[in-house]
Structure formats: structure tokens, C-alpha cells
Design a protein around this nucleic acid. Structure first.
Lengths: 276, 276
DNA sequence: CCTTTTTCGTAACGTATGATACGTTTTTTA
DNA sequence: TAAAAAACGTATCATACGTTACGAAAAAGG
């Protein structure tokens, strides 16, 4: 049983006629990108005609060229998502735990490969205005992350609130939010309608929305000024929110640094109150 | 000077109109494969129209869609040809963000190098007895993780409670806990006295304690039946709880698998209630 | 060496794709 | 608030693409 298309080709290459063998060789040589181009490109590169390419693809078991390309893309997507495990692949009998941990590490790594420093900086700038209020909210499983972030932000700056309790209460809080306020939302599949409605209402009031979501992008992205997408796929019944959690920690850390001088006094004052 | 298309997008994202920004976000979130598919696929995934995608591509400086795809393919080809250099990418002048992310990855990796499968299995066995109640609690910053775990456990089994609110309330709940109950505590520096006292009281009542803490071990370890220590050091003003978060996710995942057959019916029943 | 079978390319076809013009809606500016 | 500008989507078009039929060429078998 061949797991990848490359292996599949290696298996059947011997049984192929001359022209298709040329196609197979050029595909292996330029794997897999040449297979993602057009049939004409592929055939030209291989020095054969277009129908030969199609016959080659059909011989591999695909019903048409599009199906063949989809398979290549899926394979490529899997590769791109896990560049680390590929090198350290096949200590075969790893436990489920180790596998899930690896997947989580990949998710975090992959997430931040597509998050630019600039994006972080912009969001931090937005959150560092102590005049404007910051409101945090999340979905069924992500609300604890909002809470975690709120717990930290409360310490380094004023005007931070975590929207808790019944969803109807959120709307009541809208009355206190102005155009200069920022709403930080955590939302992953399966996206909750209540959050979407709330975000829509907030957006209509001109409130800036910072959305932390998964790679499929919550519909709230439509109303958001800033969107950060984290990867969530792990071999488990649940999606992993670890990447979102790290995003929150990064934002916390950077914001703390940005407000360093101002927040020092605030922290000291707090500790005094706590100690007394 | 932007070297990659991803950077190019990050640079110009701010100056883009709403629809094109959505296109940019979905491309970054599914980078780069969505850009290699057809305009129709891309536009559908982004929730905008085809012309918006083409305008987006044009704004990036490409004369047509094919040119844009070629650029993506070239970039991808370079990546695939040197899989090793990719890890060592973004070489000397890494941002603080990247450094903190790396430290977090190290923490998680290191944490699970010292956590045995056996340990996980034992804890899962302890938590899988549906007769016994599970109570979760955490400290000032770790309580959201307890909450996160509780949100999941509530779905897959009965008798799960998150100890919320004032610390004095926790003690009142002790009266309902029996010898067969399990108390899951998250606690990192600076360890809170209130948590310690509560754990001591619980231990005296014969309640099993599962402690998730940092590598310096909370004093609660003294009363705990199981202790898992996660690494927390990052170059930031705060400690990172990401490793603890992953521990929670691992426990959730394994417990879900352990209770798979029993919890299936429960989940279905829940969705029915939710839908009705 | 001739016949049969397989393989391959030319050419033509229909569809799906990228591109564009235009009207509507939204946002910005006065 | 009204006018101007920008942005967006619908509908349409031209073409490039994948696909197929058919005949020529090559290979295999007798």
C-alpha cells in the first residue's frame, strides 16, 4: 500500500510505456510542483504530448487531472504543516501522547511562521492606549483564554474587562463601549452564533475588533480590524487551542513591554495593596 | 524590501480595503496552497467575489493571476528544495516574538520529555471513574486552564465541577467531597497561600489531588497523589503557562479516548438538548 | 516479414477559468 | 447632510484548459 504518490509512481513505473515513464521521471525530478501546473506545462517539460500526461495520470488510478492535483496538494499541505516531524520522522511506535504533543508543537510553530512581527506590533499599539477600554470575550472553549489574557492585562493597565456570564449580558455592556474601545475575541470552530451577533453589533458601534481564531477563520473576521489565525489540528477528538493560548501570551508579553515604564508603578501599587 | 509574498502582504495589508484584506487574511491563514487553487476556490474560501481576489492580486503588483501563482510556486519550490534551511530560516535578527515562541516550544517539548506515558495513563484512569466527582481549581493566572479543562470534561462525563468565585466558597464545597473524589489543581509561582490551605484541607479528607505545577513544584506537591511539572521560563516579564495548557489538553484527549464508548451517547444527548 | 496489438500525437470539442465592463452600495469628503 | 469617490459584486465575454476521438507510428507476436 503506497502512502504517497511518489511511492505509487515508483511502484508502477516499470510497467509503464516509454512516454508515460518519461512523465513519471520528470514528475519525480520536479516533485511535486510540476504536477500542480497545467497539463501543457507538464507535457512540454517531459517532452511528450498532453494526452500522454493524462494517460499517465489515469494509470495511477485518478479519474481526471483535477483529482490528481488535489491529491498532490493534500500531500503538500501535510508536508508544509509538519516540517519538523518529517526530519525526525518514524520513531514508529511513539505513544499517542508524544504524537499529540508533536502536533501541538507543529501547530504553534506553523502559526507563528505566518504571523508577522508587524501584525503583533500593530495590535499591541492598539491595546496600549490606556484611555481606551479593552473588552475580552471567547466561545465555549476559548473563553478561558480570554479570561487568562484579561487576568494579566488587568494588572498592567486600567480599563480591562472580561465579558462573562450570560450572552445577553454582553449586549448590555455594549452601551458602555465607545468608538475608541477595543474588543478582543477568541473564536474557533464550531463558531457560535451568539458571538457572531455580538461582534456584529459591536462593529456597528465602531468598536475595533481583534480576532484570534483558527485557520478556517471565524465569520467574525468580516468585522475585525485585526485577525490572527492559529492552527488547531491534532490527532484527537477535540481541536487544540494551544496555539491561540500562545498567541495570547505573546500579546501579553509584548504589551507588558510596551507599557513597561507606566505599568511598573501600577504593579508596585498593587502589590502594596495586596500585602496590606 | 519584502523577500517573500507573505511579508509583502503583511506590509500592505493595512492599506487594503475590507474585501481585499479578507483575501489577504485567508491567504495567510492557508499559506500558500489556497493561492495555487483557482480564483473561484480562493474567493469562495475568503467569502468575497472573484474580482476582489483579482484586485487583491493586482494590488500586490502582479499583472495577472498566473503571474501571482508562479511567484507562489517559485517560493514553494525554494522551500521544498531546502527543507533544512527552512527551520533555520529568518536567521540572525529574530524578533522577540520568535524568541519567545521558541522558548515556549522548548518548554513544551522539555516538559513532555519528563512526563511518562505511564503517568498520564494513571491519572486518566483516576479521572475515568464516573462515580467519583472531579473538582478543578487554579491560581490567579492558572484558573482559566482549570476552567478550560472543566469545560471539556463536563461534556464527556458527569460529576465535574469547577471551583469558582471567592476562595472561601471553595472550603464550603469541601463538605460535598468524598474520599473517592479527585481534585485537580493548577498552581505555579508565586504560589498562593489560599490554594495551599485548601489543598491541605482536602488532603486531610482523603481526597486524591492531581497537581499540575511548574518545575519548582508548588508546596501542594506534598499532599498530591500525582504531580506533573511543566516548564514555564520564557524571556518575558511573565512566566508562560503554555506547557500547563498542553498538559491539560493531553489529559482531556486521553480521557476522552478512555471514555469514548460511554461518552458518545452522552455527547449525542447533549447535542440534542442543545439543538432543541 | 506480415499481422496484430499497443502506444503515441494531432486535431477538434466543450467546459471552466480568468478577466472586464457596469451598476449598486458603501465610505469619504466637503 | 449632500456630493464625490472608492469599493464591491453581478453578469458577460474571450480564451486557455482538460478532455476525447481518431489515425499514424511503433512494438510485439506468430
Amino acid at each position: 500500500m503506497a502512502t504517497s504518490i511518489a511511492e505509487l509512481i515508483a511502484d508502477r513505473m516499470d510497467a509503464m510505456p516509454t512516454g508515460e515513464k518519461r512523465a513519471a521521471q520528470t514528475l519525480i525530478a520536479n516533485y511535486p510542483l510540476i504536477g500542480l501546473k497545467t497539463v501543457a506545462d507538464f507535457s512540454h517539460q517531459a517532452g511528450v504530448s498532453s494526452p500522454t500526461i493524462l494517460r499517465f495520470v489515469a494509470r495511477l488510478g485518478f479519474h481526471n487531472y483535477a483529482e490528481f492535483q488535489s491529491a498532490l496538494q493534500d500531500e503538500l499541505a501535510a508536508q508544509l504543516q509538519s516540517p519538523l516531524t518529517r526530519t525526525a520522522q518514524t520513531p514508529p511506535s511513539r505513544g499517542r501522547t508524544a504524537q499529540t504533543v508533536d502536533a501541538t508543537l507543529e501547530n504553534i510553530h506553523g502559526t507563528f511562521q505566518h504571523v508577522s512581527d508587524r501584525q503583533i506590533r500593530d495590535i499591541v499599539t492598539l491595546l496600549s492606549n490606556r484611555r481606551c477600554g479593552i473588552h475580552l470575550v471567547g466561545g465555549r472553549f476559548t473563553d478561558p483564554i480570554a479570561r487568562y489574557m484579561a487576568a494579566h492585562l488587568t494588572i498592567i493597565r486600567p480599563n480591562v474587562s472580561h465579558l462573562t456570564g450570560q450572552e445577553s449580558n454582553w449586549r448590555d455592556r455594549l452601551i458602555d463601549m465607545g468608538k475608541r474601545d477595543v474588543l478582543v475575541i477568541f473564536d474557533i470552530r464550531r463558531y457560535q452564533d451568539s458571538l457572531l451577533h455580538f461582534a456584529e453589533l459591536a462593529a456597528k458601534r465602531g468598536i475595533h475588533i481583534v480576532l484570534v481564531t483558527d485557520q478556517w477563520l471565524s465569520p467574525i473576521a468580516r468585522f475585525s480590524r485585526h485577525v490572527i489565525a492559529g492552527r488547531t489540528a491534532v490527532p484527537s477528538a477535540w481541536d487544540s487551542s494551544a496555539a491561540l493560548f500562545v498567541i495570547a501570551e505573546i500579546l501579553i508579553g509584548e504589551l507588558t513591554r510596551a507599557l513597561e515604564t507606566e505599568s511598573q508603578g501600577r504593579i508596585r501599587e498593587m502589590e502594596a495593596l495586596r500585602g496590606g
